[in-house]
Design a protein around this nucleic acid. Structure first.
Length: 569
DNA sequence: TGGCCTTTGAAGAGC
DNA sequence: GCTCTTCAAAGGCCA
């Protein structure tokens, strides 16, 4: 059988070369995609402005018709949303009109700096200073995980206000209350003066404990490689520890903080930061409801805030030792939230921007937009968030080594269990209330990444993220993601069909091969990537081209896929 | 008042 | 190893 150079479909799309360069690891991204993307980028705001203008015009016309007034001067500035009774209506109109996949494409990080380590190497110069390249972009590291009452503030009389904290500890996160566009200050150089650390930060002996201090964060934590000369210049990845200018970023849990942090596997990245930022004088003596670690990590949520309310079980005195005491002990444990994943970080950063652009506030609609934008992000842009998320997970695991995602299971009210597909079909047939479709069904995702109709095309897929130096490690989940991007049956069907179609089209177009393995592939190849590789490199007897997606699908069905990858030349 | 909606990704459970 | 479920953020909506 004729050997088809399936590799070309993968690499030629991104550059027509092999996998030697990360930039060429974007699969399924062809010139058309780039063009679409470019057009999207270029016209994004223009389209939006045009759309808004149009909508405003309609609104004005309607208003003028209703009021009979033609006075422009007396007319207040029109707002697009005035044309719609519901945000989703406005969004639907937006989507209806916009055909550009990059509709919302804009500057990737308009509001926040970004902490990024180029090339995964040390961003620091031998002298400890941050290299210029490393300093080009930073991500605002507003740790987004602490969820506490808005009114919760530091009660320590010695530190009457968070802004007064000597170390500018971000103890108040207005998770739902702080405008995301509020700029964050960077680390204060006062506390990270190069070469002049506070005396209590002696690198050798902890003055409080007398225990030799762990090495500097940069020595142990590859994820927060802050050199003494750089920490005062850039927002640390632990920026959640840093308050804004006079504004608390995170609130202290009602119980306050405990110091030191006995349960912490004292990674140096935590040690020096914690000891420097949570000096004893700001620590309230009481530590009720504090996480055993005592770490004021934003993921800590006071049980008062989020725990399932079982106050009814509490005795009036609150110190009952009833059989439920064990449960109560559990309840006292603060709720440690999951670290945010890349998309969550992206959403947190970009939500306000989208809200501002679209005058939408309904999160469900906003999230749909953000989902599209996420897919329209370039690999590099996504890689930043993947890297950031990886750092968050790393830090989280350091802060809470015993924490497991399982701990949070059941902490939320149980979701309404989704019905089985068959049930959904039955429900549809029985004319039950359909799901609200914020975006049109016929064009559920217009991002350039989906221009082929397959979600596999998305640059957001971890298989492509793998290509990035900053891409997340190839975990099991990530490996499986490209093939389980959605559990929606219709999406799956679409996926299969379009995958077959893609194979067909790419097979005909491919001309180069996956000959030289990328250095990046020295890592284990994610399963999905292997699958793709197998598909693209060694189909036992695939024809060079198939006349139709159906034909390709037939071949796929007739020939079980092999995971055997093509050996590197 | 509290769950739902909606998105993606990580992680755990279950088979 | 795969699939499914849950949770993370967000804020309007709705029963």
């Amino acid at each position: 059988p004729r050997e088809v150079n399936w590799g070309g479909g993968l690499s030629a799309a991104a550059g027509g070369d092999d996998l030697g360069a990360p930039d060429e690891l974007i699969p399924f991204q062809d010139e058309g995609d780039e063009q679409d993307k470019g057009a999207g980028r270029g016209s994004a705001h223009g389209d939006l402005d045009e759309l808004k203008s149009s909508l405003v015009h309609e609104s004005e016309n309607r208003r003028a018709s209703a009021s009979g007034s033609d006075s422009e001067a007396e007319r207040p500035p029109p707002q697009p949303r005035e044309s719609f009774q519901k945000p989703r209506d406005y969004l639907a109109e937006v989507v209806r009109r916009q055909q550009d996949g990059g509709f919302f494409k804009g500057p990737p990080y308009p509001g926040y700096p970004f902490l990024m380590i180029p090339e995964l190497g040390s961003p620091y110069l031998p002298n400890g200073a941050l290299s210029p390249g490393a300093a080009r972009t930073y991500l605002q590291m507003k740790w987004p995980l602490l969820d506490v009452p808005a009114g919760a503030t530091l009660k320590d009389s010695r530190s009457p206000s968070p802004a007064h904290l000597s170390n500018k500890v971000p103890v108040v996160q207005h998770a739902h209350h702080m405008h995301p566009l509020t700029p964050l200050i960077t680390y204060s150089s006062d506390h990270f003066s190069p070469g002049s650390p506070p005396s209590h930060l002696s690198p050798e002996i902890d003055p409080k404990t007398g225990i030799p201090r762990p090495p500097h964060p940069s020595e142990l934590s590859p994820y927060y490689p802050l050199s003494p000369g750089a920490v005062g210049q850039i927002p640390h990845a632990l920026g959640w520890l840093v308050p804004q200018q006079g504004q608390p970023v995170y609130s202290i849990p009602p119980g306050g903080f405990r110091h030191p942090y006995p349960a912490l596997a004292m990674n140096a990245s935590m040690s020096s930061l914690m000891s420097s930022r949570f000096s004893p004088h700001m620590v309230p003596p009481a530590a009720h409801g504090l996480h055993p670690s005592g770490i004021p990590h934003p993921t800590i949520v006071s049980p008062i805030v989020k725990q399932e309310s079982t106050q009814a079980n509490m005795s009036p005195g609150g110190n009952s030792k009833s059989p439920g005491s064990v449960k109560k002990e559990e309840e006292k444990k603060p709720h440690i939230k999951k670290p945010l994943n890349a998309f969550m970080l992206y959403m947190k950063e970009m939500r306000a921007k989208v809200v501002a652009e679209c005058t939408l506030k309904e999160s469900a609609a906003i999230n749909q937009i953000l989902g599209r934008r996420w897919h329209s992000l370039s690999r590099e842009e996504q890689a930043k968030y993947y890297e950031l998320a990886r750092k968050e997970r790393q830090l989280h695991s350091q802060l809470y080594p015993t924490w497991s995602a399982r701990d949070n299971y059941g902490k939320k009210k149980k979701r309404k269990r989704e019905k089985q597909p068959q049930q959904q079909i039955q429900d549809t047939e029985s004319n039950k209330k359909p799901c609200v479709q914020y975006l049109p069904i016929e064009k559920p995702c217009d991002s350039p990444a989906s221009s082929h109709g397959s979600m596999l095309d998305s640059p957001a897929t971890p298989s492509t993220a793998l290509a990035s130096p900053a891409a997340p490690a190839a975990t099991h989940s990530e490996q499986a993601q490209p093939l389980s991007l959605t559990t929606k049956p219709e999406a799956r069907a679409q996926l299969s069909l379009h995958s077959a179609a893609f194979l067909s089209s790419k097979a005909a177009a491919s001309s180069s091969s996956l000959s030289s393995p990328s250095p990046l592939l020295s890592r284990p190849i994610p399963f999905a990537t292997m699958t793709h590789t197998a598909l693209l490199t060694s189909p036992p007897s695939f024809p060079a081209a198939l006349p139709s997606p159906q034909a390709a699908l037939a071949v796929l069905q007739a020939q079980p896929l092999s995971l055997v990858t093509k050996p590197a030349d």
